[in-house]
Design a binder for these strands. Structure first.
Lengths: 335, 335
DNA sequence: CTGAAAGCGCTTACAG
DNA sequence: CTGAAAGCGCTTACAG
């Protein structure tokens, strides 16, 4: 086991006090050019890195942010984290990862987040029970919602305009002459899926077309059962699902029943995961720029953290939602 | 901004010293039943959580482990992290996430890992340059390789027996009467893919069958080009790819060229991601129990961390690889 | 521009 | 079983 090099070692080797070494790292402009260079050289030679715990404790800034997600295996989470990480690196922040949904948050997880003394929180959970809201209120550091909505203007959200987006693509399919348009959503209520549904319904109603929605599980085998039953009764002209995986699952089952895609049935997904390109035919879908969302959320959080440091007494101001542009990727599952 | 409750507040409210509060949390058996209950009650009421930085600094144990991965968006990483997290929760550990490949490790990232004073490291990177090995050697906390190989017995690896696994499935396809078996690997060298290839080659040679390997990119559009070119020349009876996504991509292209799967061409992937179930036909593949691998790696790491605390002077012992059982999931892409 | 000193919020021998 | 005290490795007013 190595002895890690400490700030004392650097100070000793450079012939200065600890304070100076610390300043070289944290306020370089306050140190004379020549001594700064000398100290820096030794820091490099010895490979010195200040202990994050000690630094965090003394400065009350940990340059660490927490990512809080309900599940890490959700299709979009990994890429979002990649976006967050790239931005975090740019600003010199390090990441802590907390995985858990509402119930875990209630129990202990949020306490762990706070105790870890992060400087800010990226919150990706979409269930906002009153209890969770309460926890958020007691949180001493800024929180940004990432691809989720905060339901209050007190917290910033970074996401796309889901309602508008679903509205527009539905309208476009109507314009192309389709009337029987199915909307496939999740059984479990997610705020963002509700928004998509609202957009779909609005477009359908504006054209006096019948709203047709099924709610299914995130579990593929349950999906298959539900979709089989549905397709035994009728075949829509267009099926639009809140997730790529559900769209593809629906498409595969319809094709097995002999309905040709896109001739008879057209299928549209949401997200543009890799699934969309690996499906056969390739899936048309709304591309959610999830990397961008993560990236932007992190950089916005750095701004809030800066303010939070400057004037912690100032009362919380309202934060608008930040919208990231989306686009539709037309592929083989539509004509 | 809330004032976080400190250990002093608890001590004050309970009418005991800080030391006692601390003991209640860390060595409850050393505290009298009645005072323990009283302190615990107040801790709960006030929602007290010890500051992780301070605790880490004072105890030299942060109950935090680092996950180090080259990319978070790799197909298997999310599920592995889920496995790690579930185990970490059980043992009371918290996670830090460091994303970066070999070059970033060299530059700064490994230094960040060390500075964050984690108690242990879960290392998932598959490039082990001599420089990286050097960094590992200087690391003051235990390291466990997760679904990667350490190339030295000094570090434990948790993974499956890739070579054996590829050997056996190749042999099985030979037994079923196939002779033209293609192996599809990545352009970029990954140690685990080399193992798979070795197993494939061994089986082929044992039966005097010609080894046929193509190396392609992880990028799907480049894949498609490579696979198109290959298929213009010949069609194998079996194609086996190191990743599900490559297998599916190959399968889709072959089908577009009119080769029926599985009648003419059979396809096998590695991993058993969700892609495998969303493909049409559904993909046969070797299931890598990636969740289990993460889970087991974390629990093994806790053991090493315990030892590391007990006797940090003891010299490093050799650690064997820990193998997790795999299985083949036969689906529609084979007959 | 630099150093001595206090303090961040804990834990842990050491006494008693 | 409990408390007073030292110390973990830093940062940051405060003097000079």
């Amino acid at each position: 086991m190595m002895n890690q090099v400490k700030i004392y070692d650097i100070a000793g080797a450079a012939g200065v006090s600890l304070a100076t070494v610390s300043r070289v790292l944290n306020h370089p402009e306050k140190v004379k050019e020549s001594t700064r260079a000398r100290v820096l050289k030794i820091i490099k030679e010895k490979g010195y890195k200040p202990n994050a715990n000690a630094r965090g404790l003394a400065s009350r800034r940990s340059t660490t942010v927490a990512i809080v997600v309900p599940r890490i295996t959700r299709a979009s989470v990994a890429e979002m984290i990649q976006g967050i990480d790239d931005s975090a690196k740019k600003y010199g922040y390090t990441l802590r990862l907390f995985i858990g949904a509402d119930t875990e948050l209630q129990r202990d997880l949020w306490g762990d987040v706070i105790a870890s003394s992060v400087d800010g929180i990226l919150f990706m959970n979409d269930e906002m029970t009153p209890e969770t809201f309460d926890l958020l209120q007691k949180t001493p550091v800024p929180v940004v919602f990432v691809n989720a909505i905060s339901q209050t203007t007190q917290y910033a959200s970074v996401l796309i305009e889901y309602e508008k987006c679903a509205y527009e693509i539905t309208k476009e399919m109507i314009r192309r002459g389709n009337k029987k348009i199915l909307f496939i959503s999740t059984e479990h209520k997610y705020a963002v899926n509700d928004l998509k549904q609202k957009g779909y319904e609005k477009a359908m109603r504006e054209h006096d077309l019948p709203v047709d929605i099924i709610y299914s599980s995130g579990d593929l085998s349950i999906n298959e059962k539900d979709f089989n039953e549905y397709l035994d009764k009728r075949v829509p002209e267009v099926a639009m699902a809140v997730r790529d995986s559900m769209a593809i699952s629906f498409m595969n089952i319809a094709m097995k029943k002999g309905h040709r895609v896109p001739d008879v049935l057209q299928v549209i997904g949401f997200q543009n995961t890799r699934y969309a390109v690996l499906s056969n035919p390739k899936l048309t879908c709304v591309e959610i720029p999830i990397y961008e969302i993560g990236n932007k959320a992190m950089s916005f959080l750095t701004e809030l953290m800066k303010q939070n440091g400057d004037n912690s007494q100032k009362d919380k101001k309202d934060h608008p939602n930040l919208y990231v542009p989306y686009q539709v990727i037309w592929r083989e599952s539509t004509k």
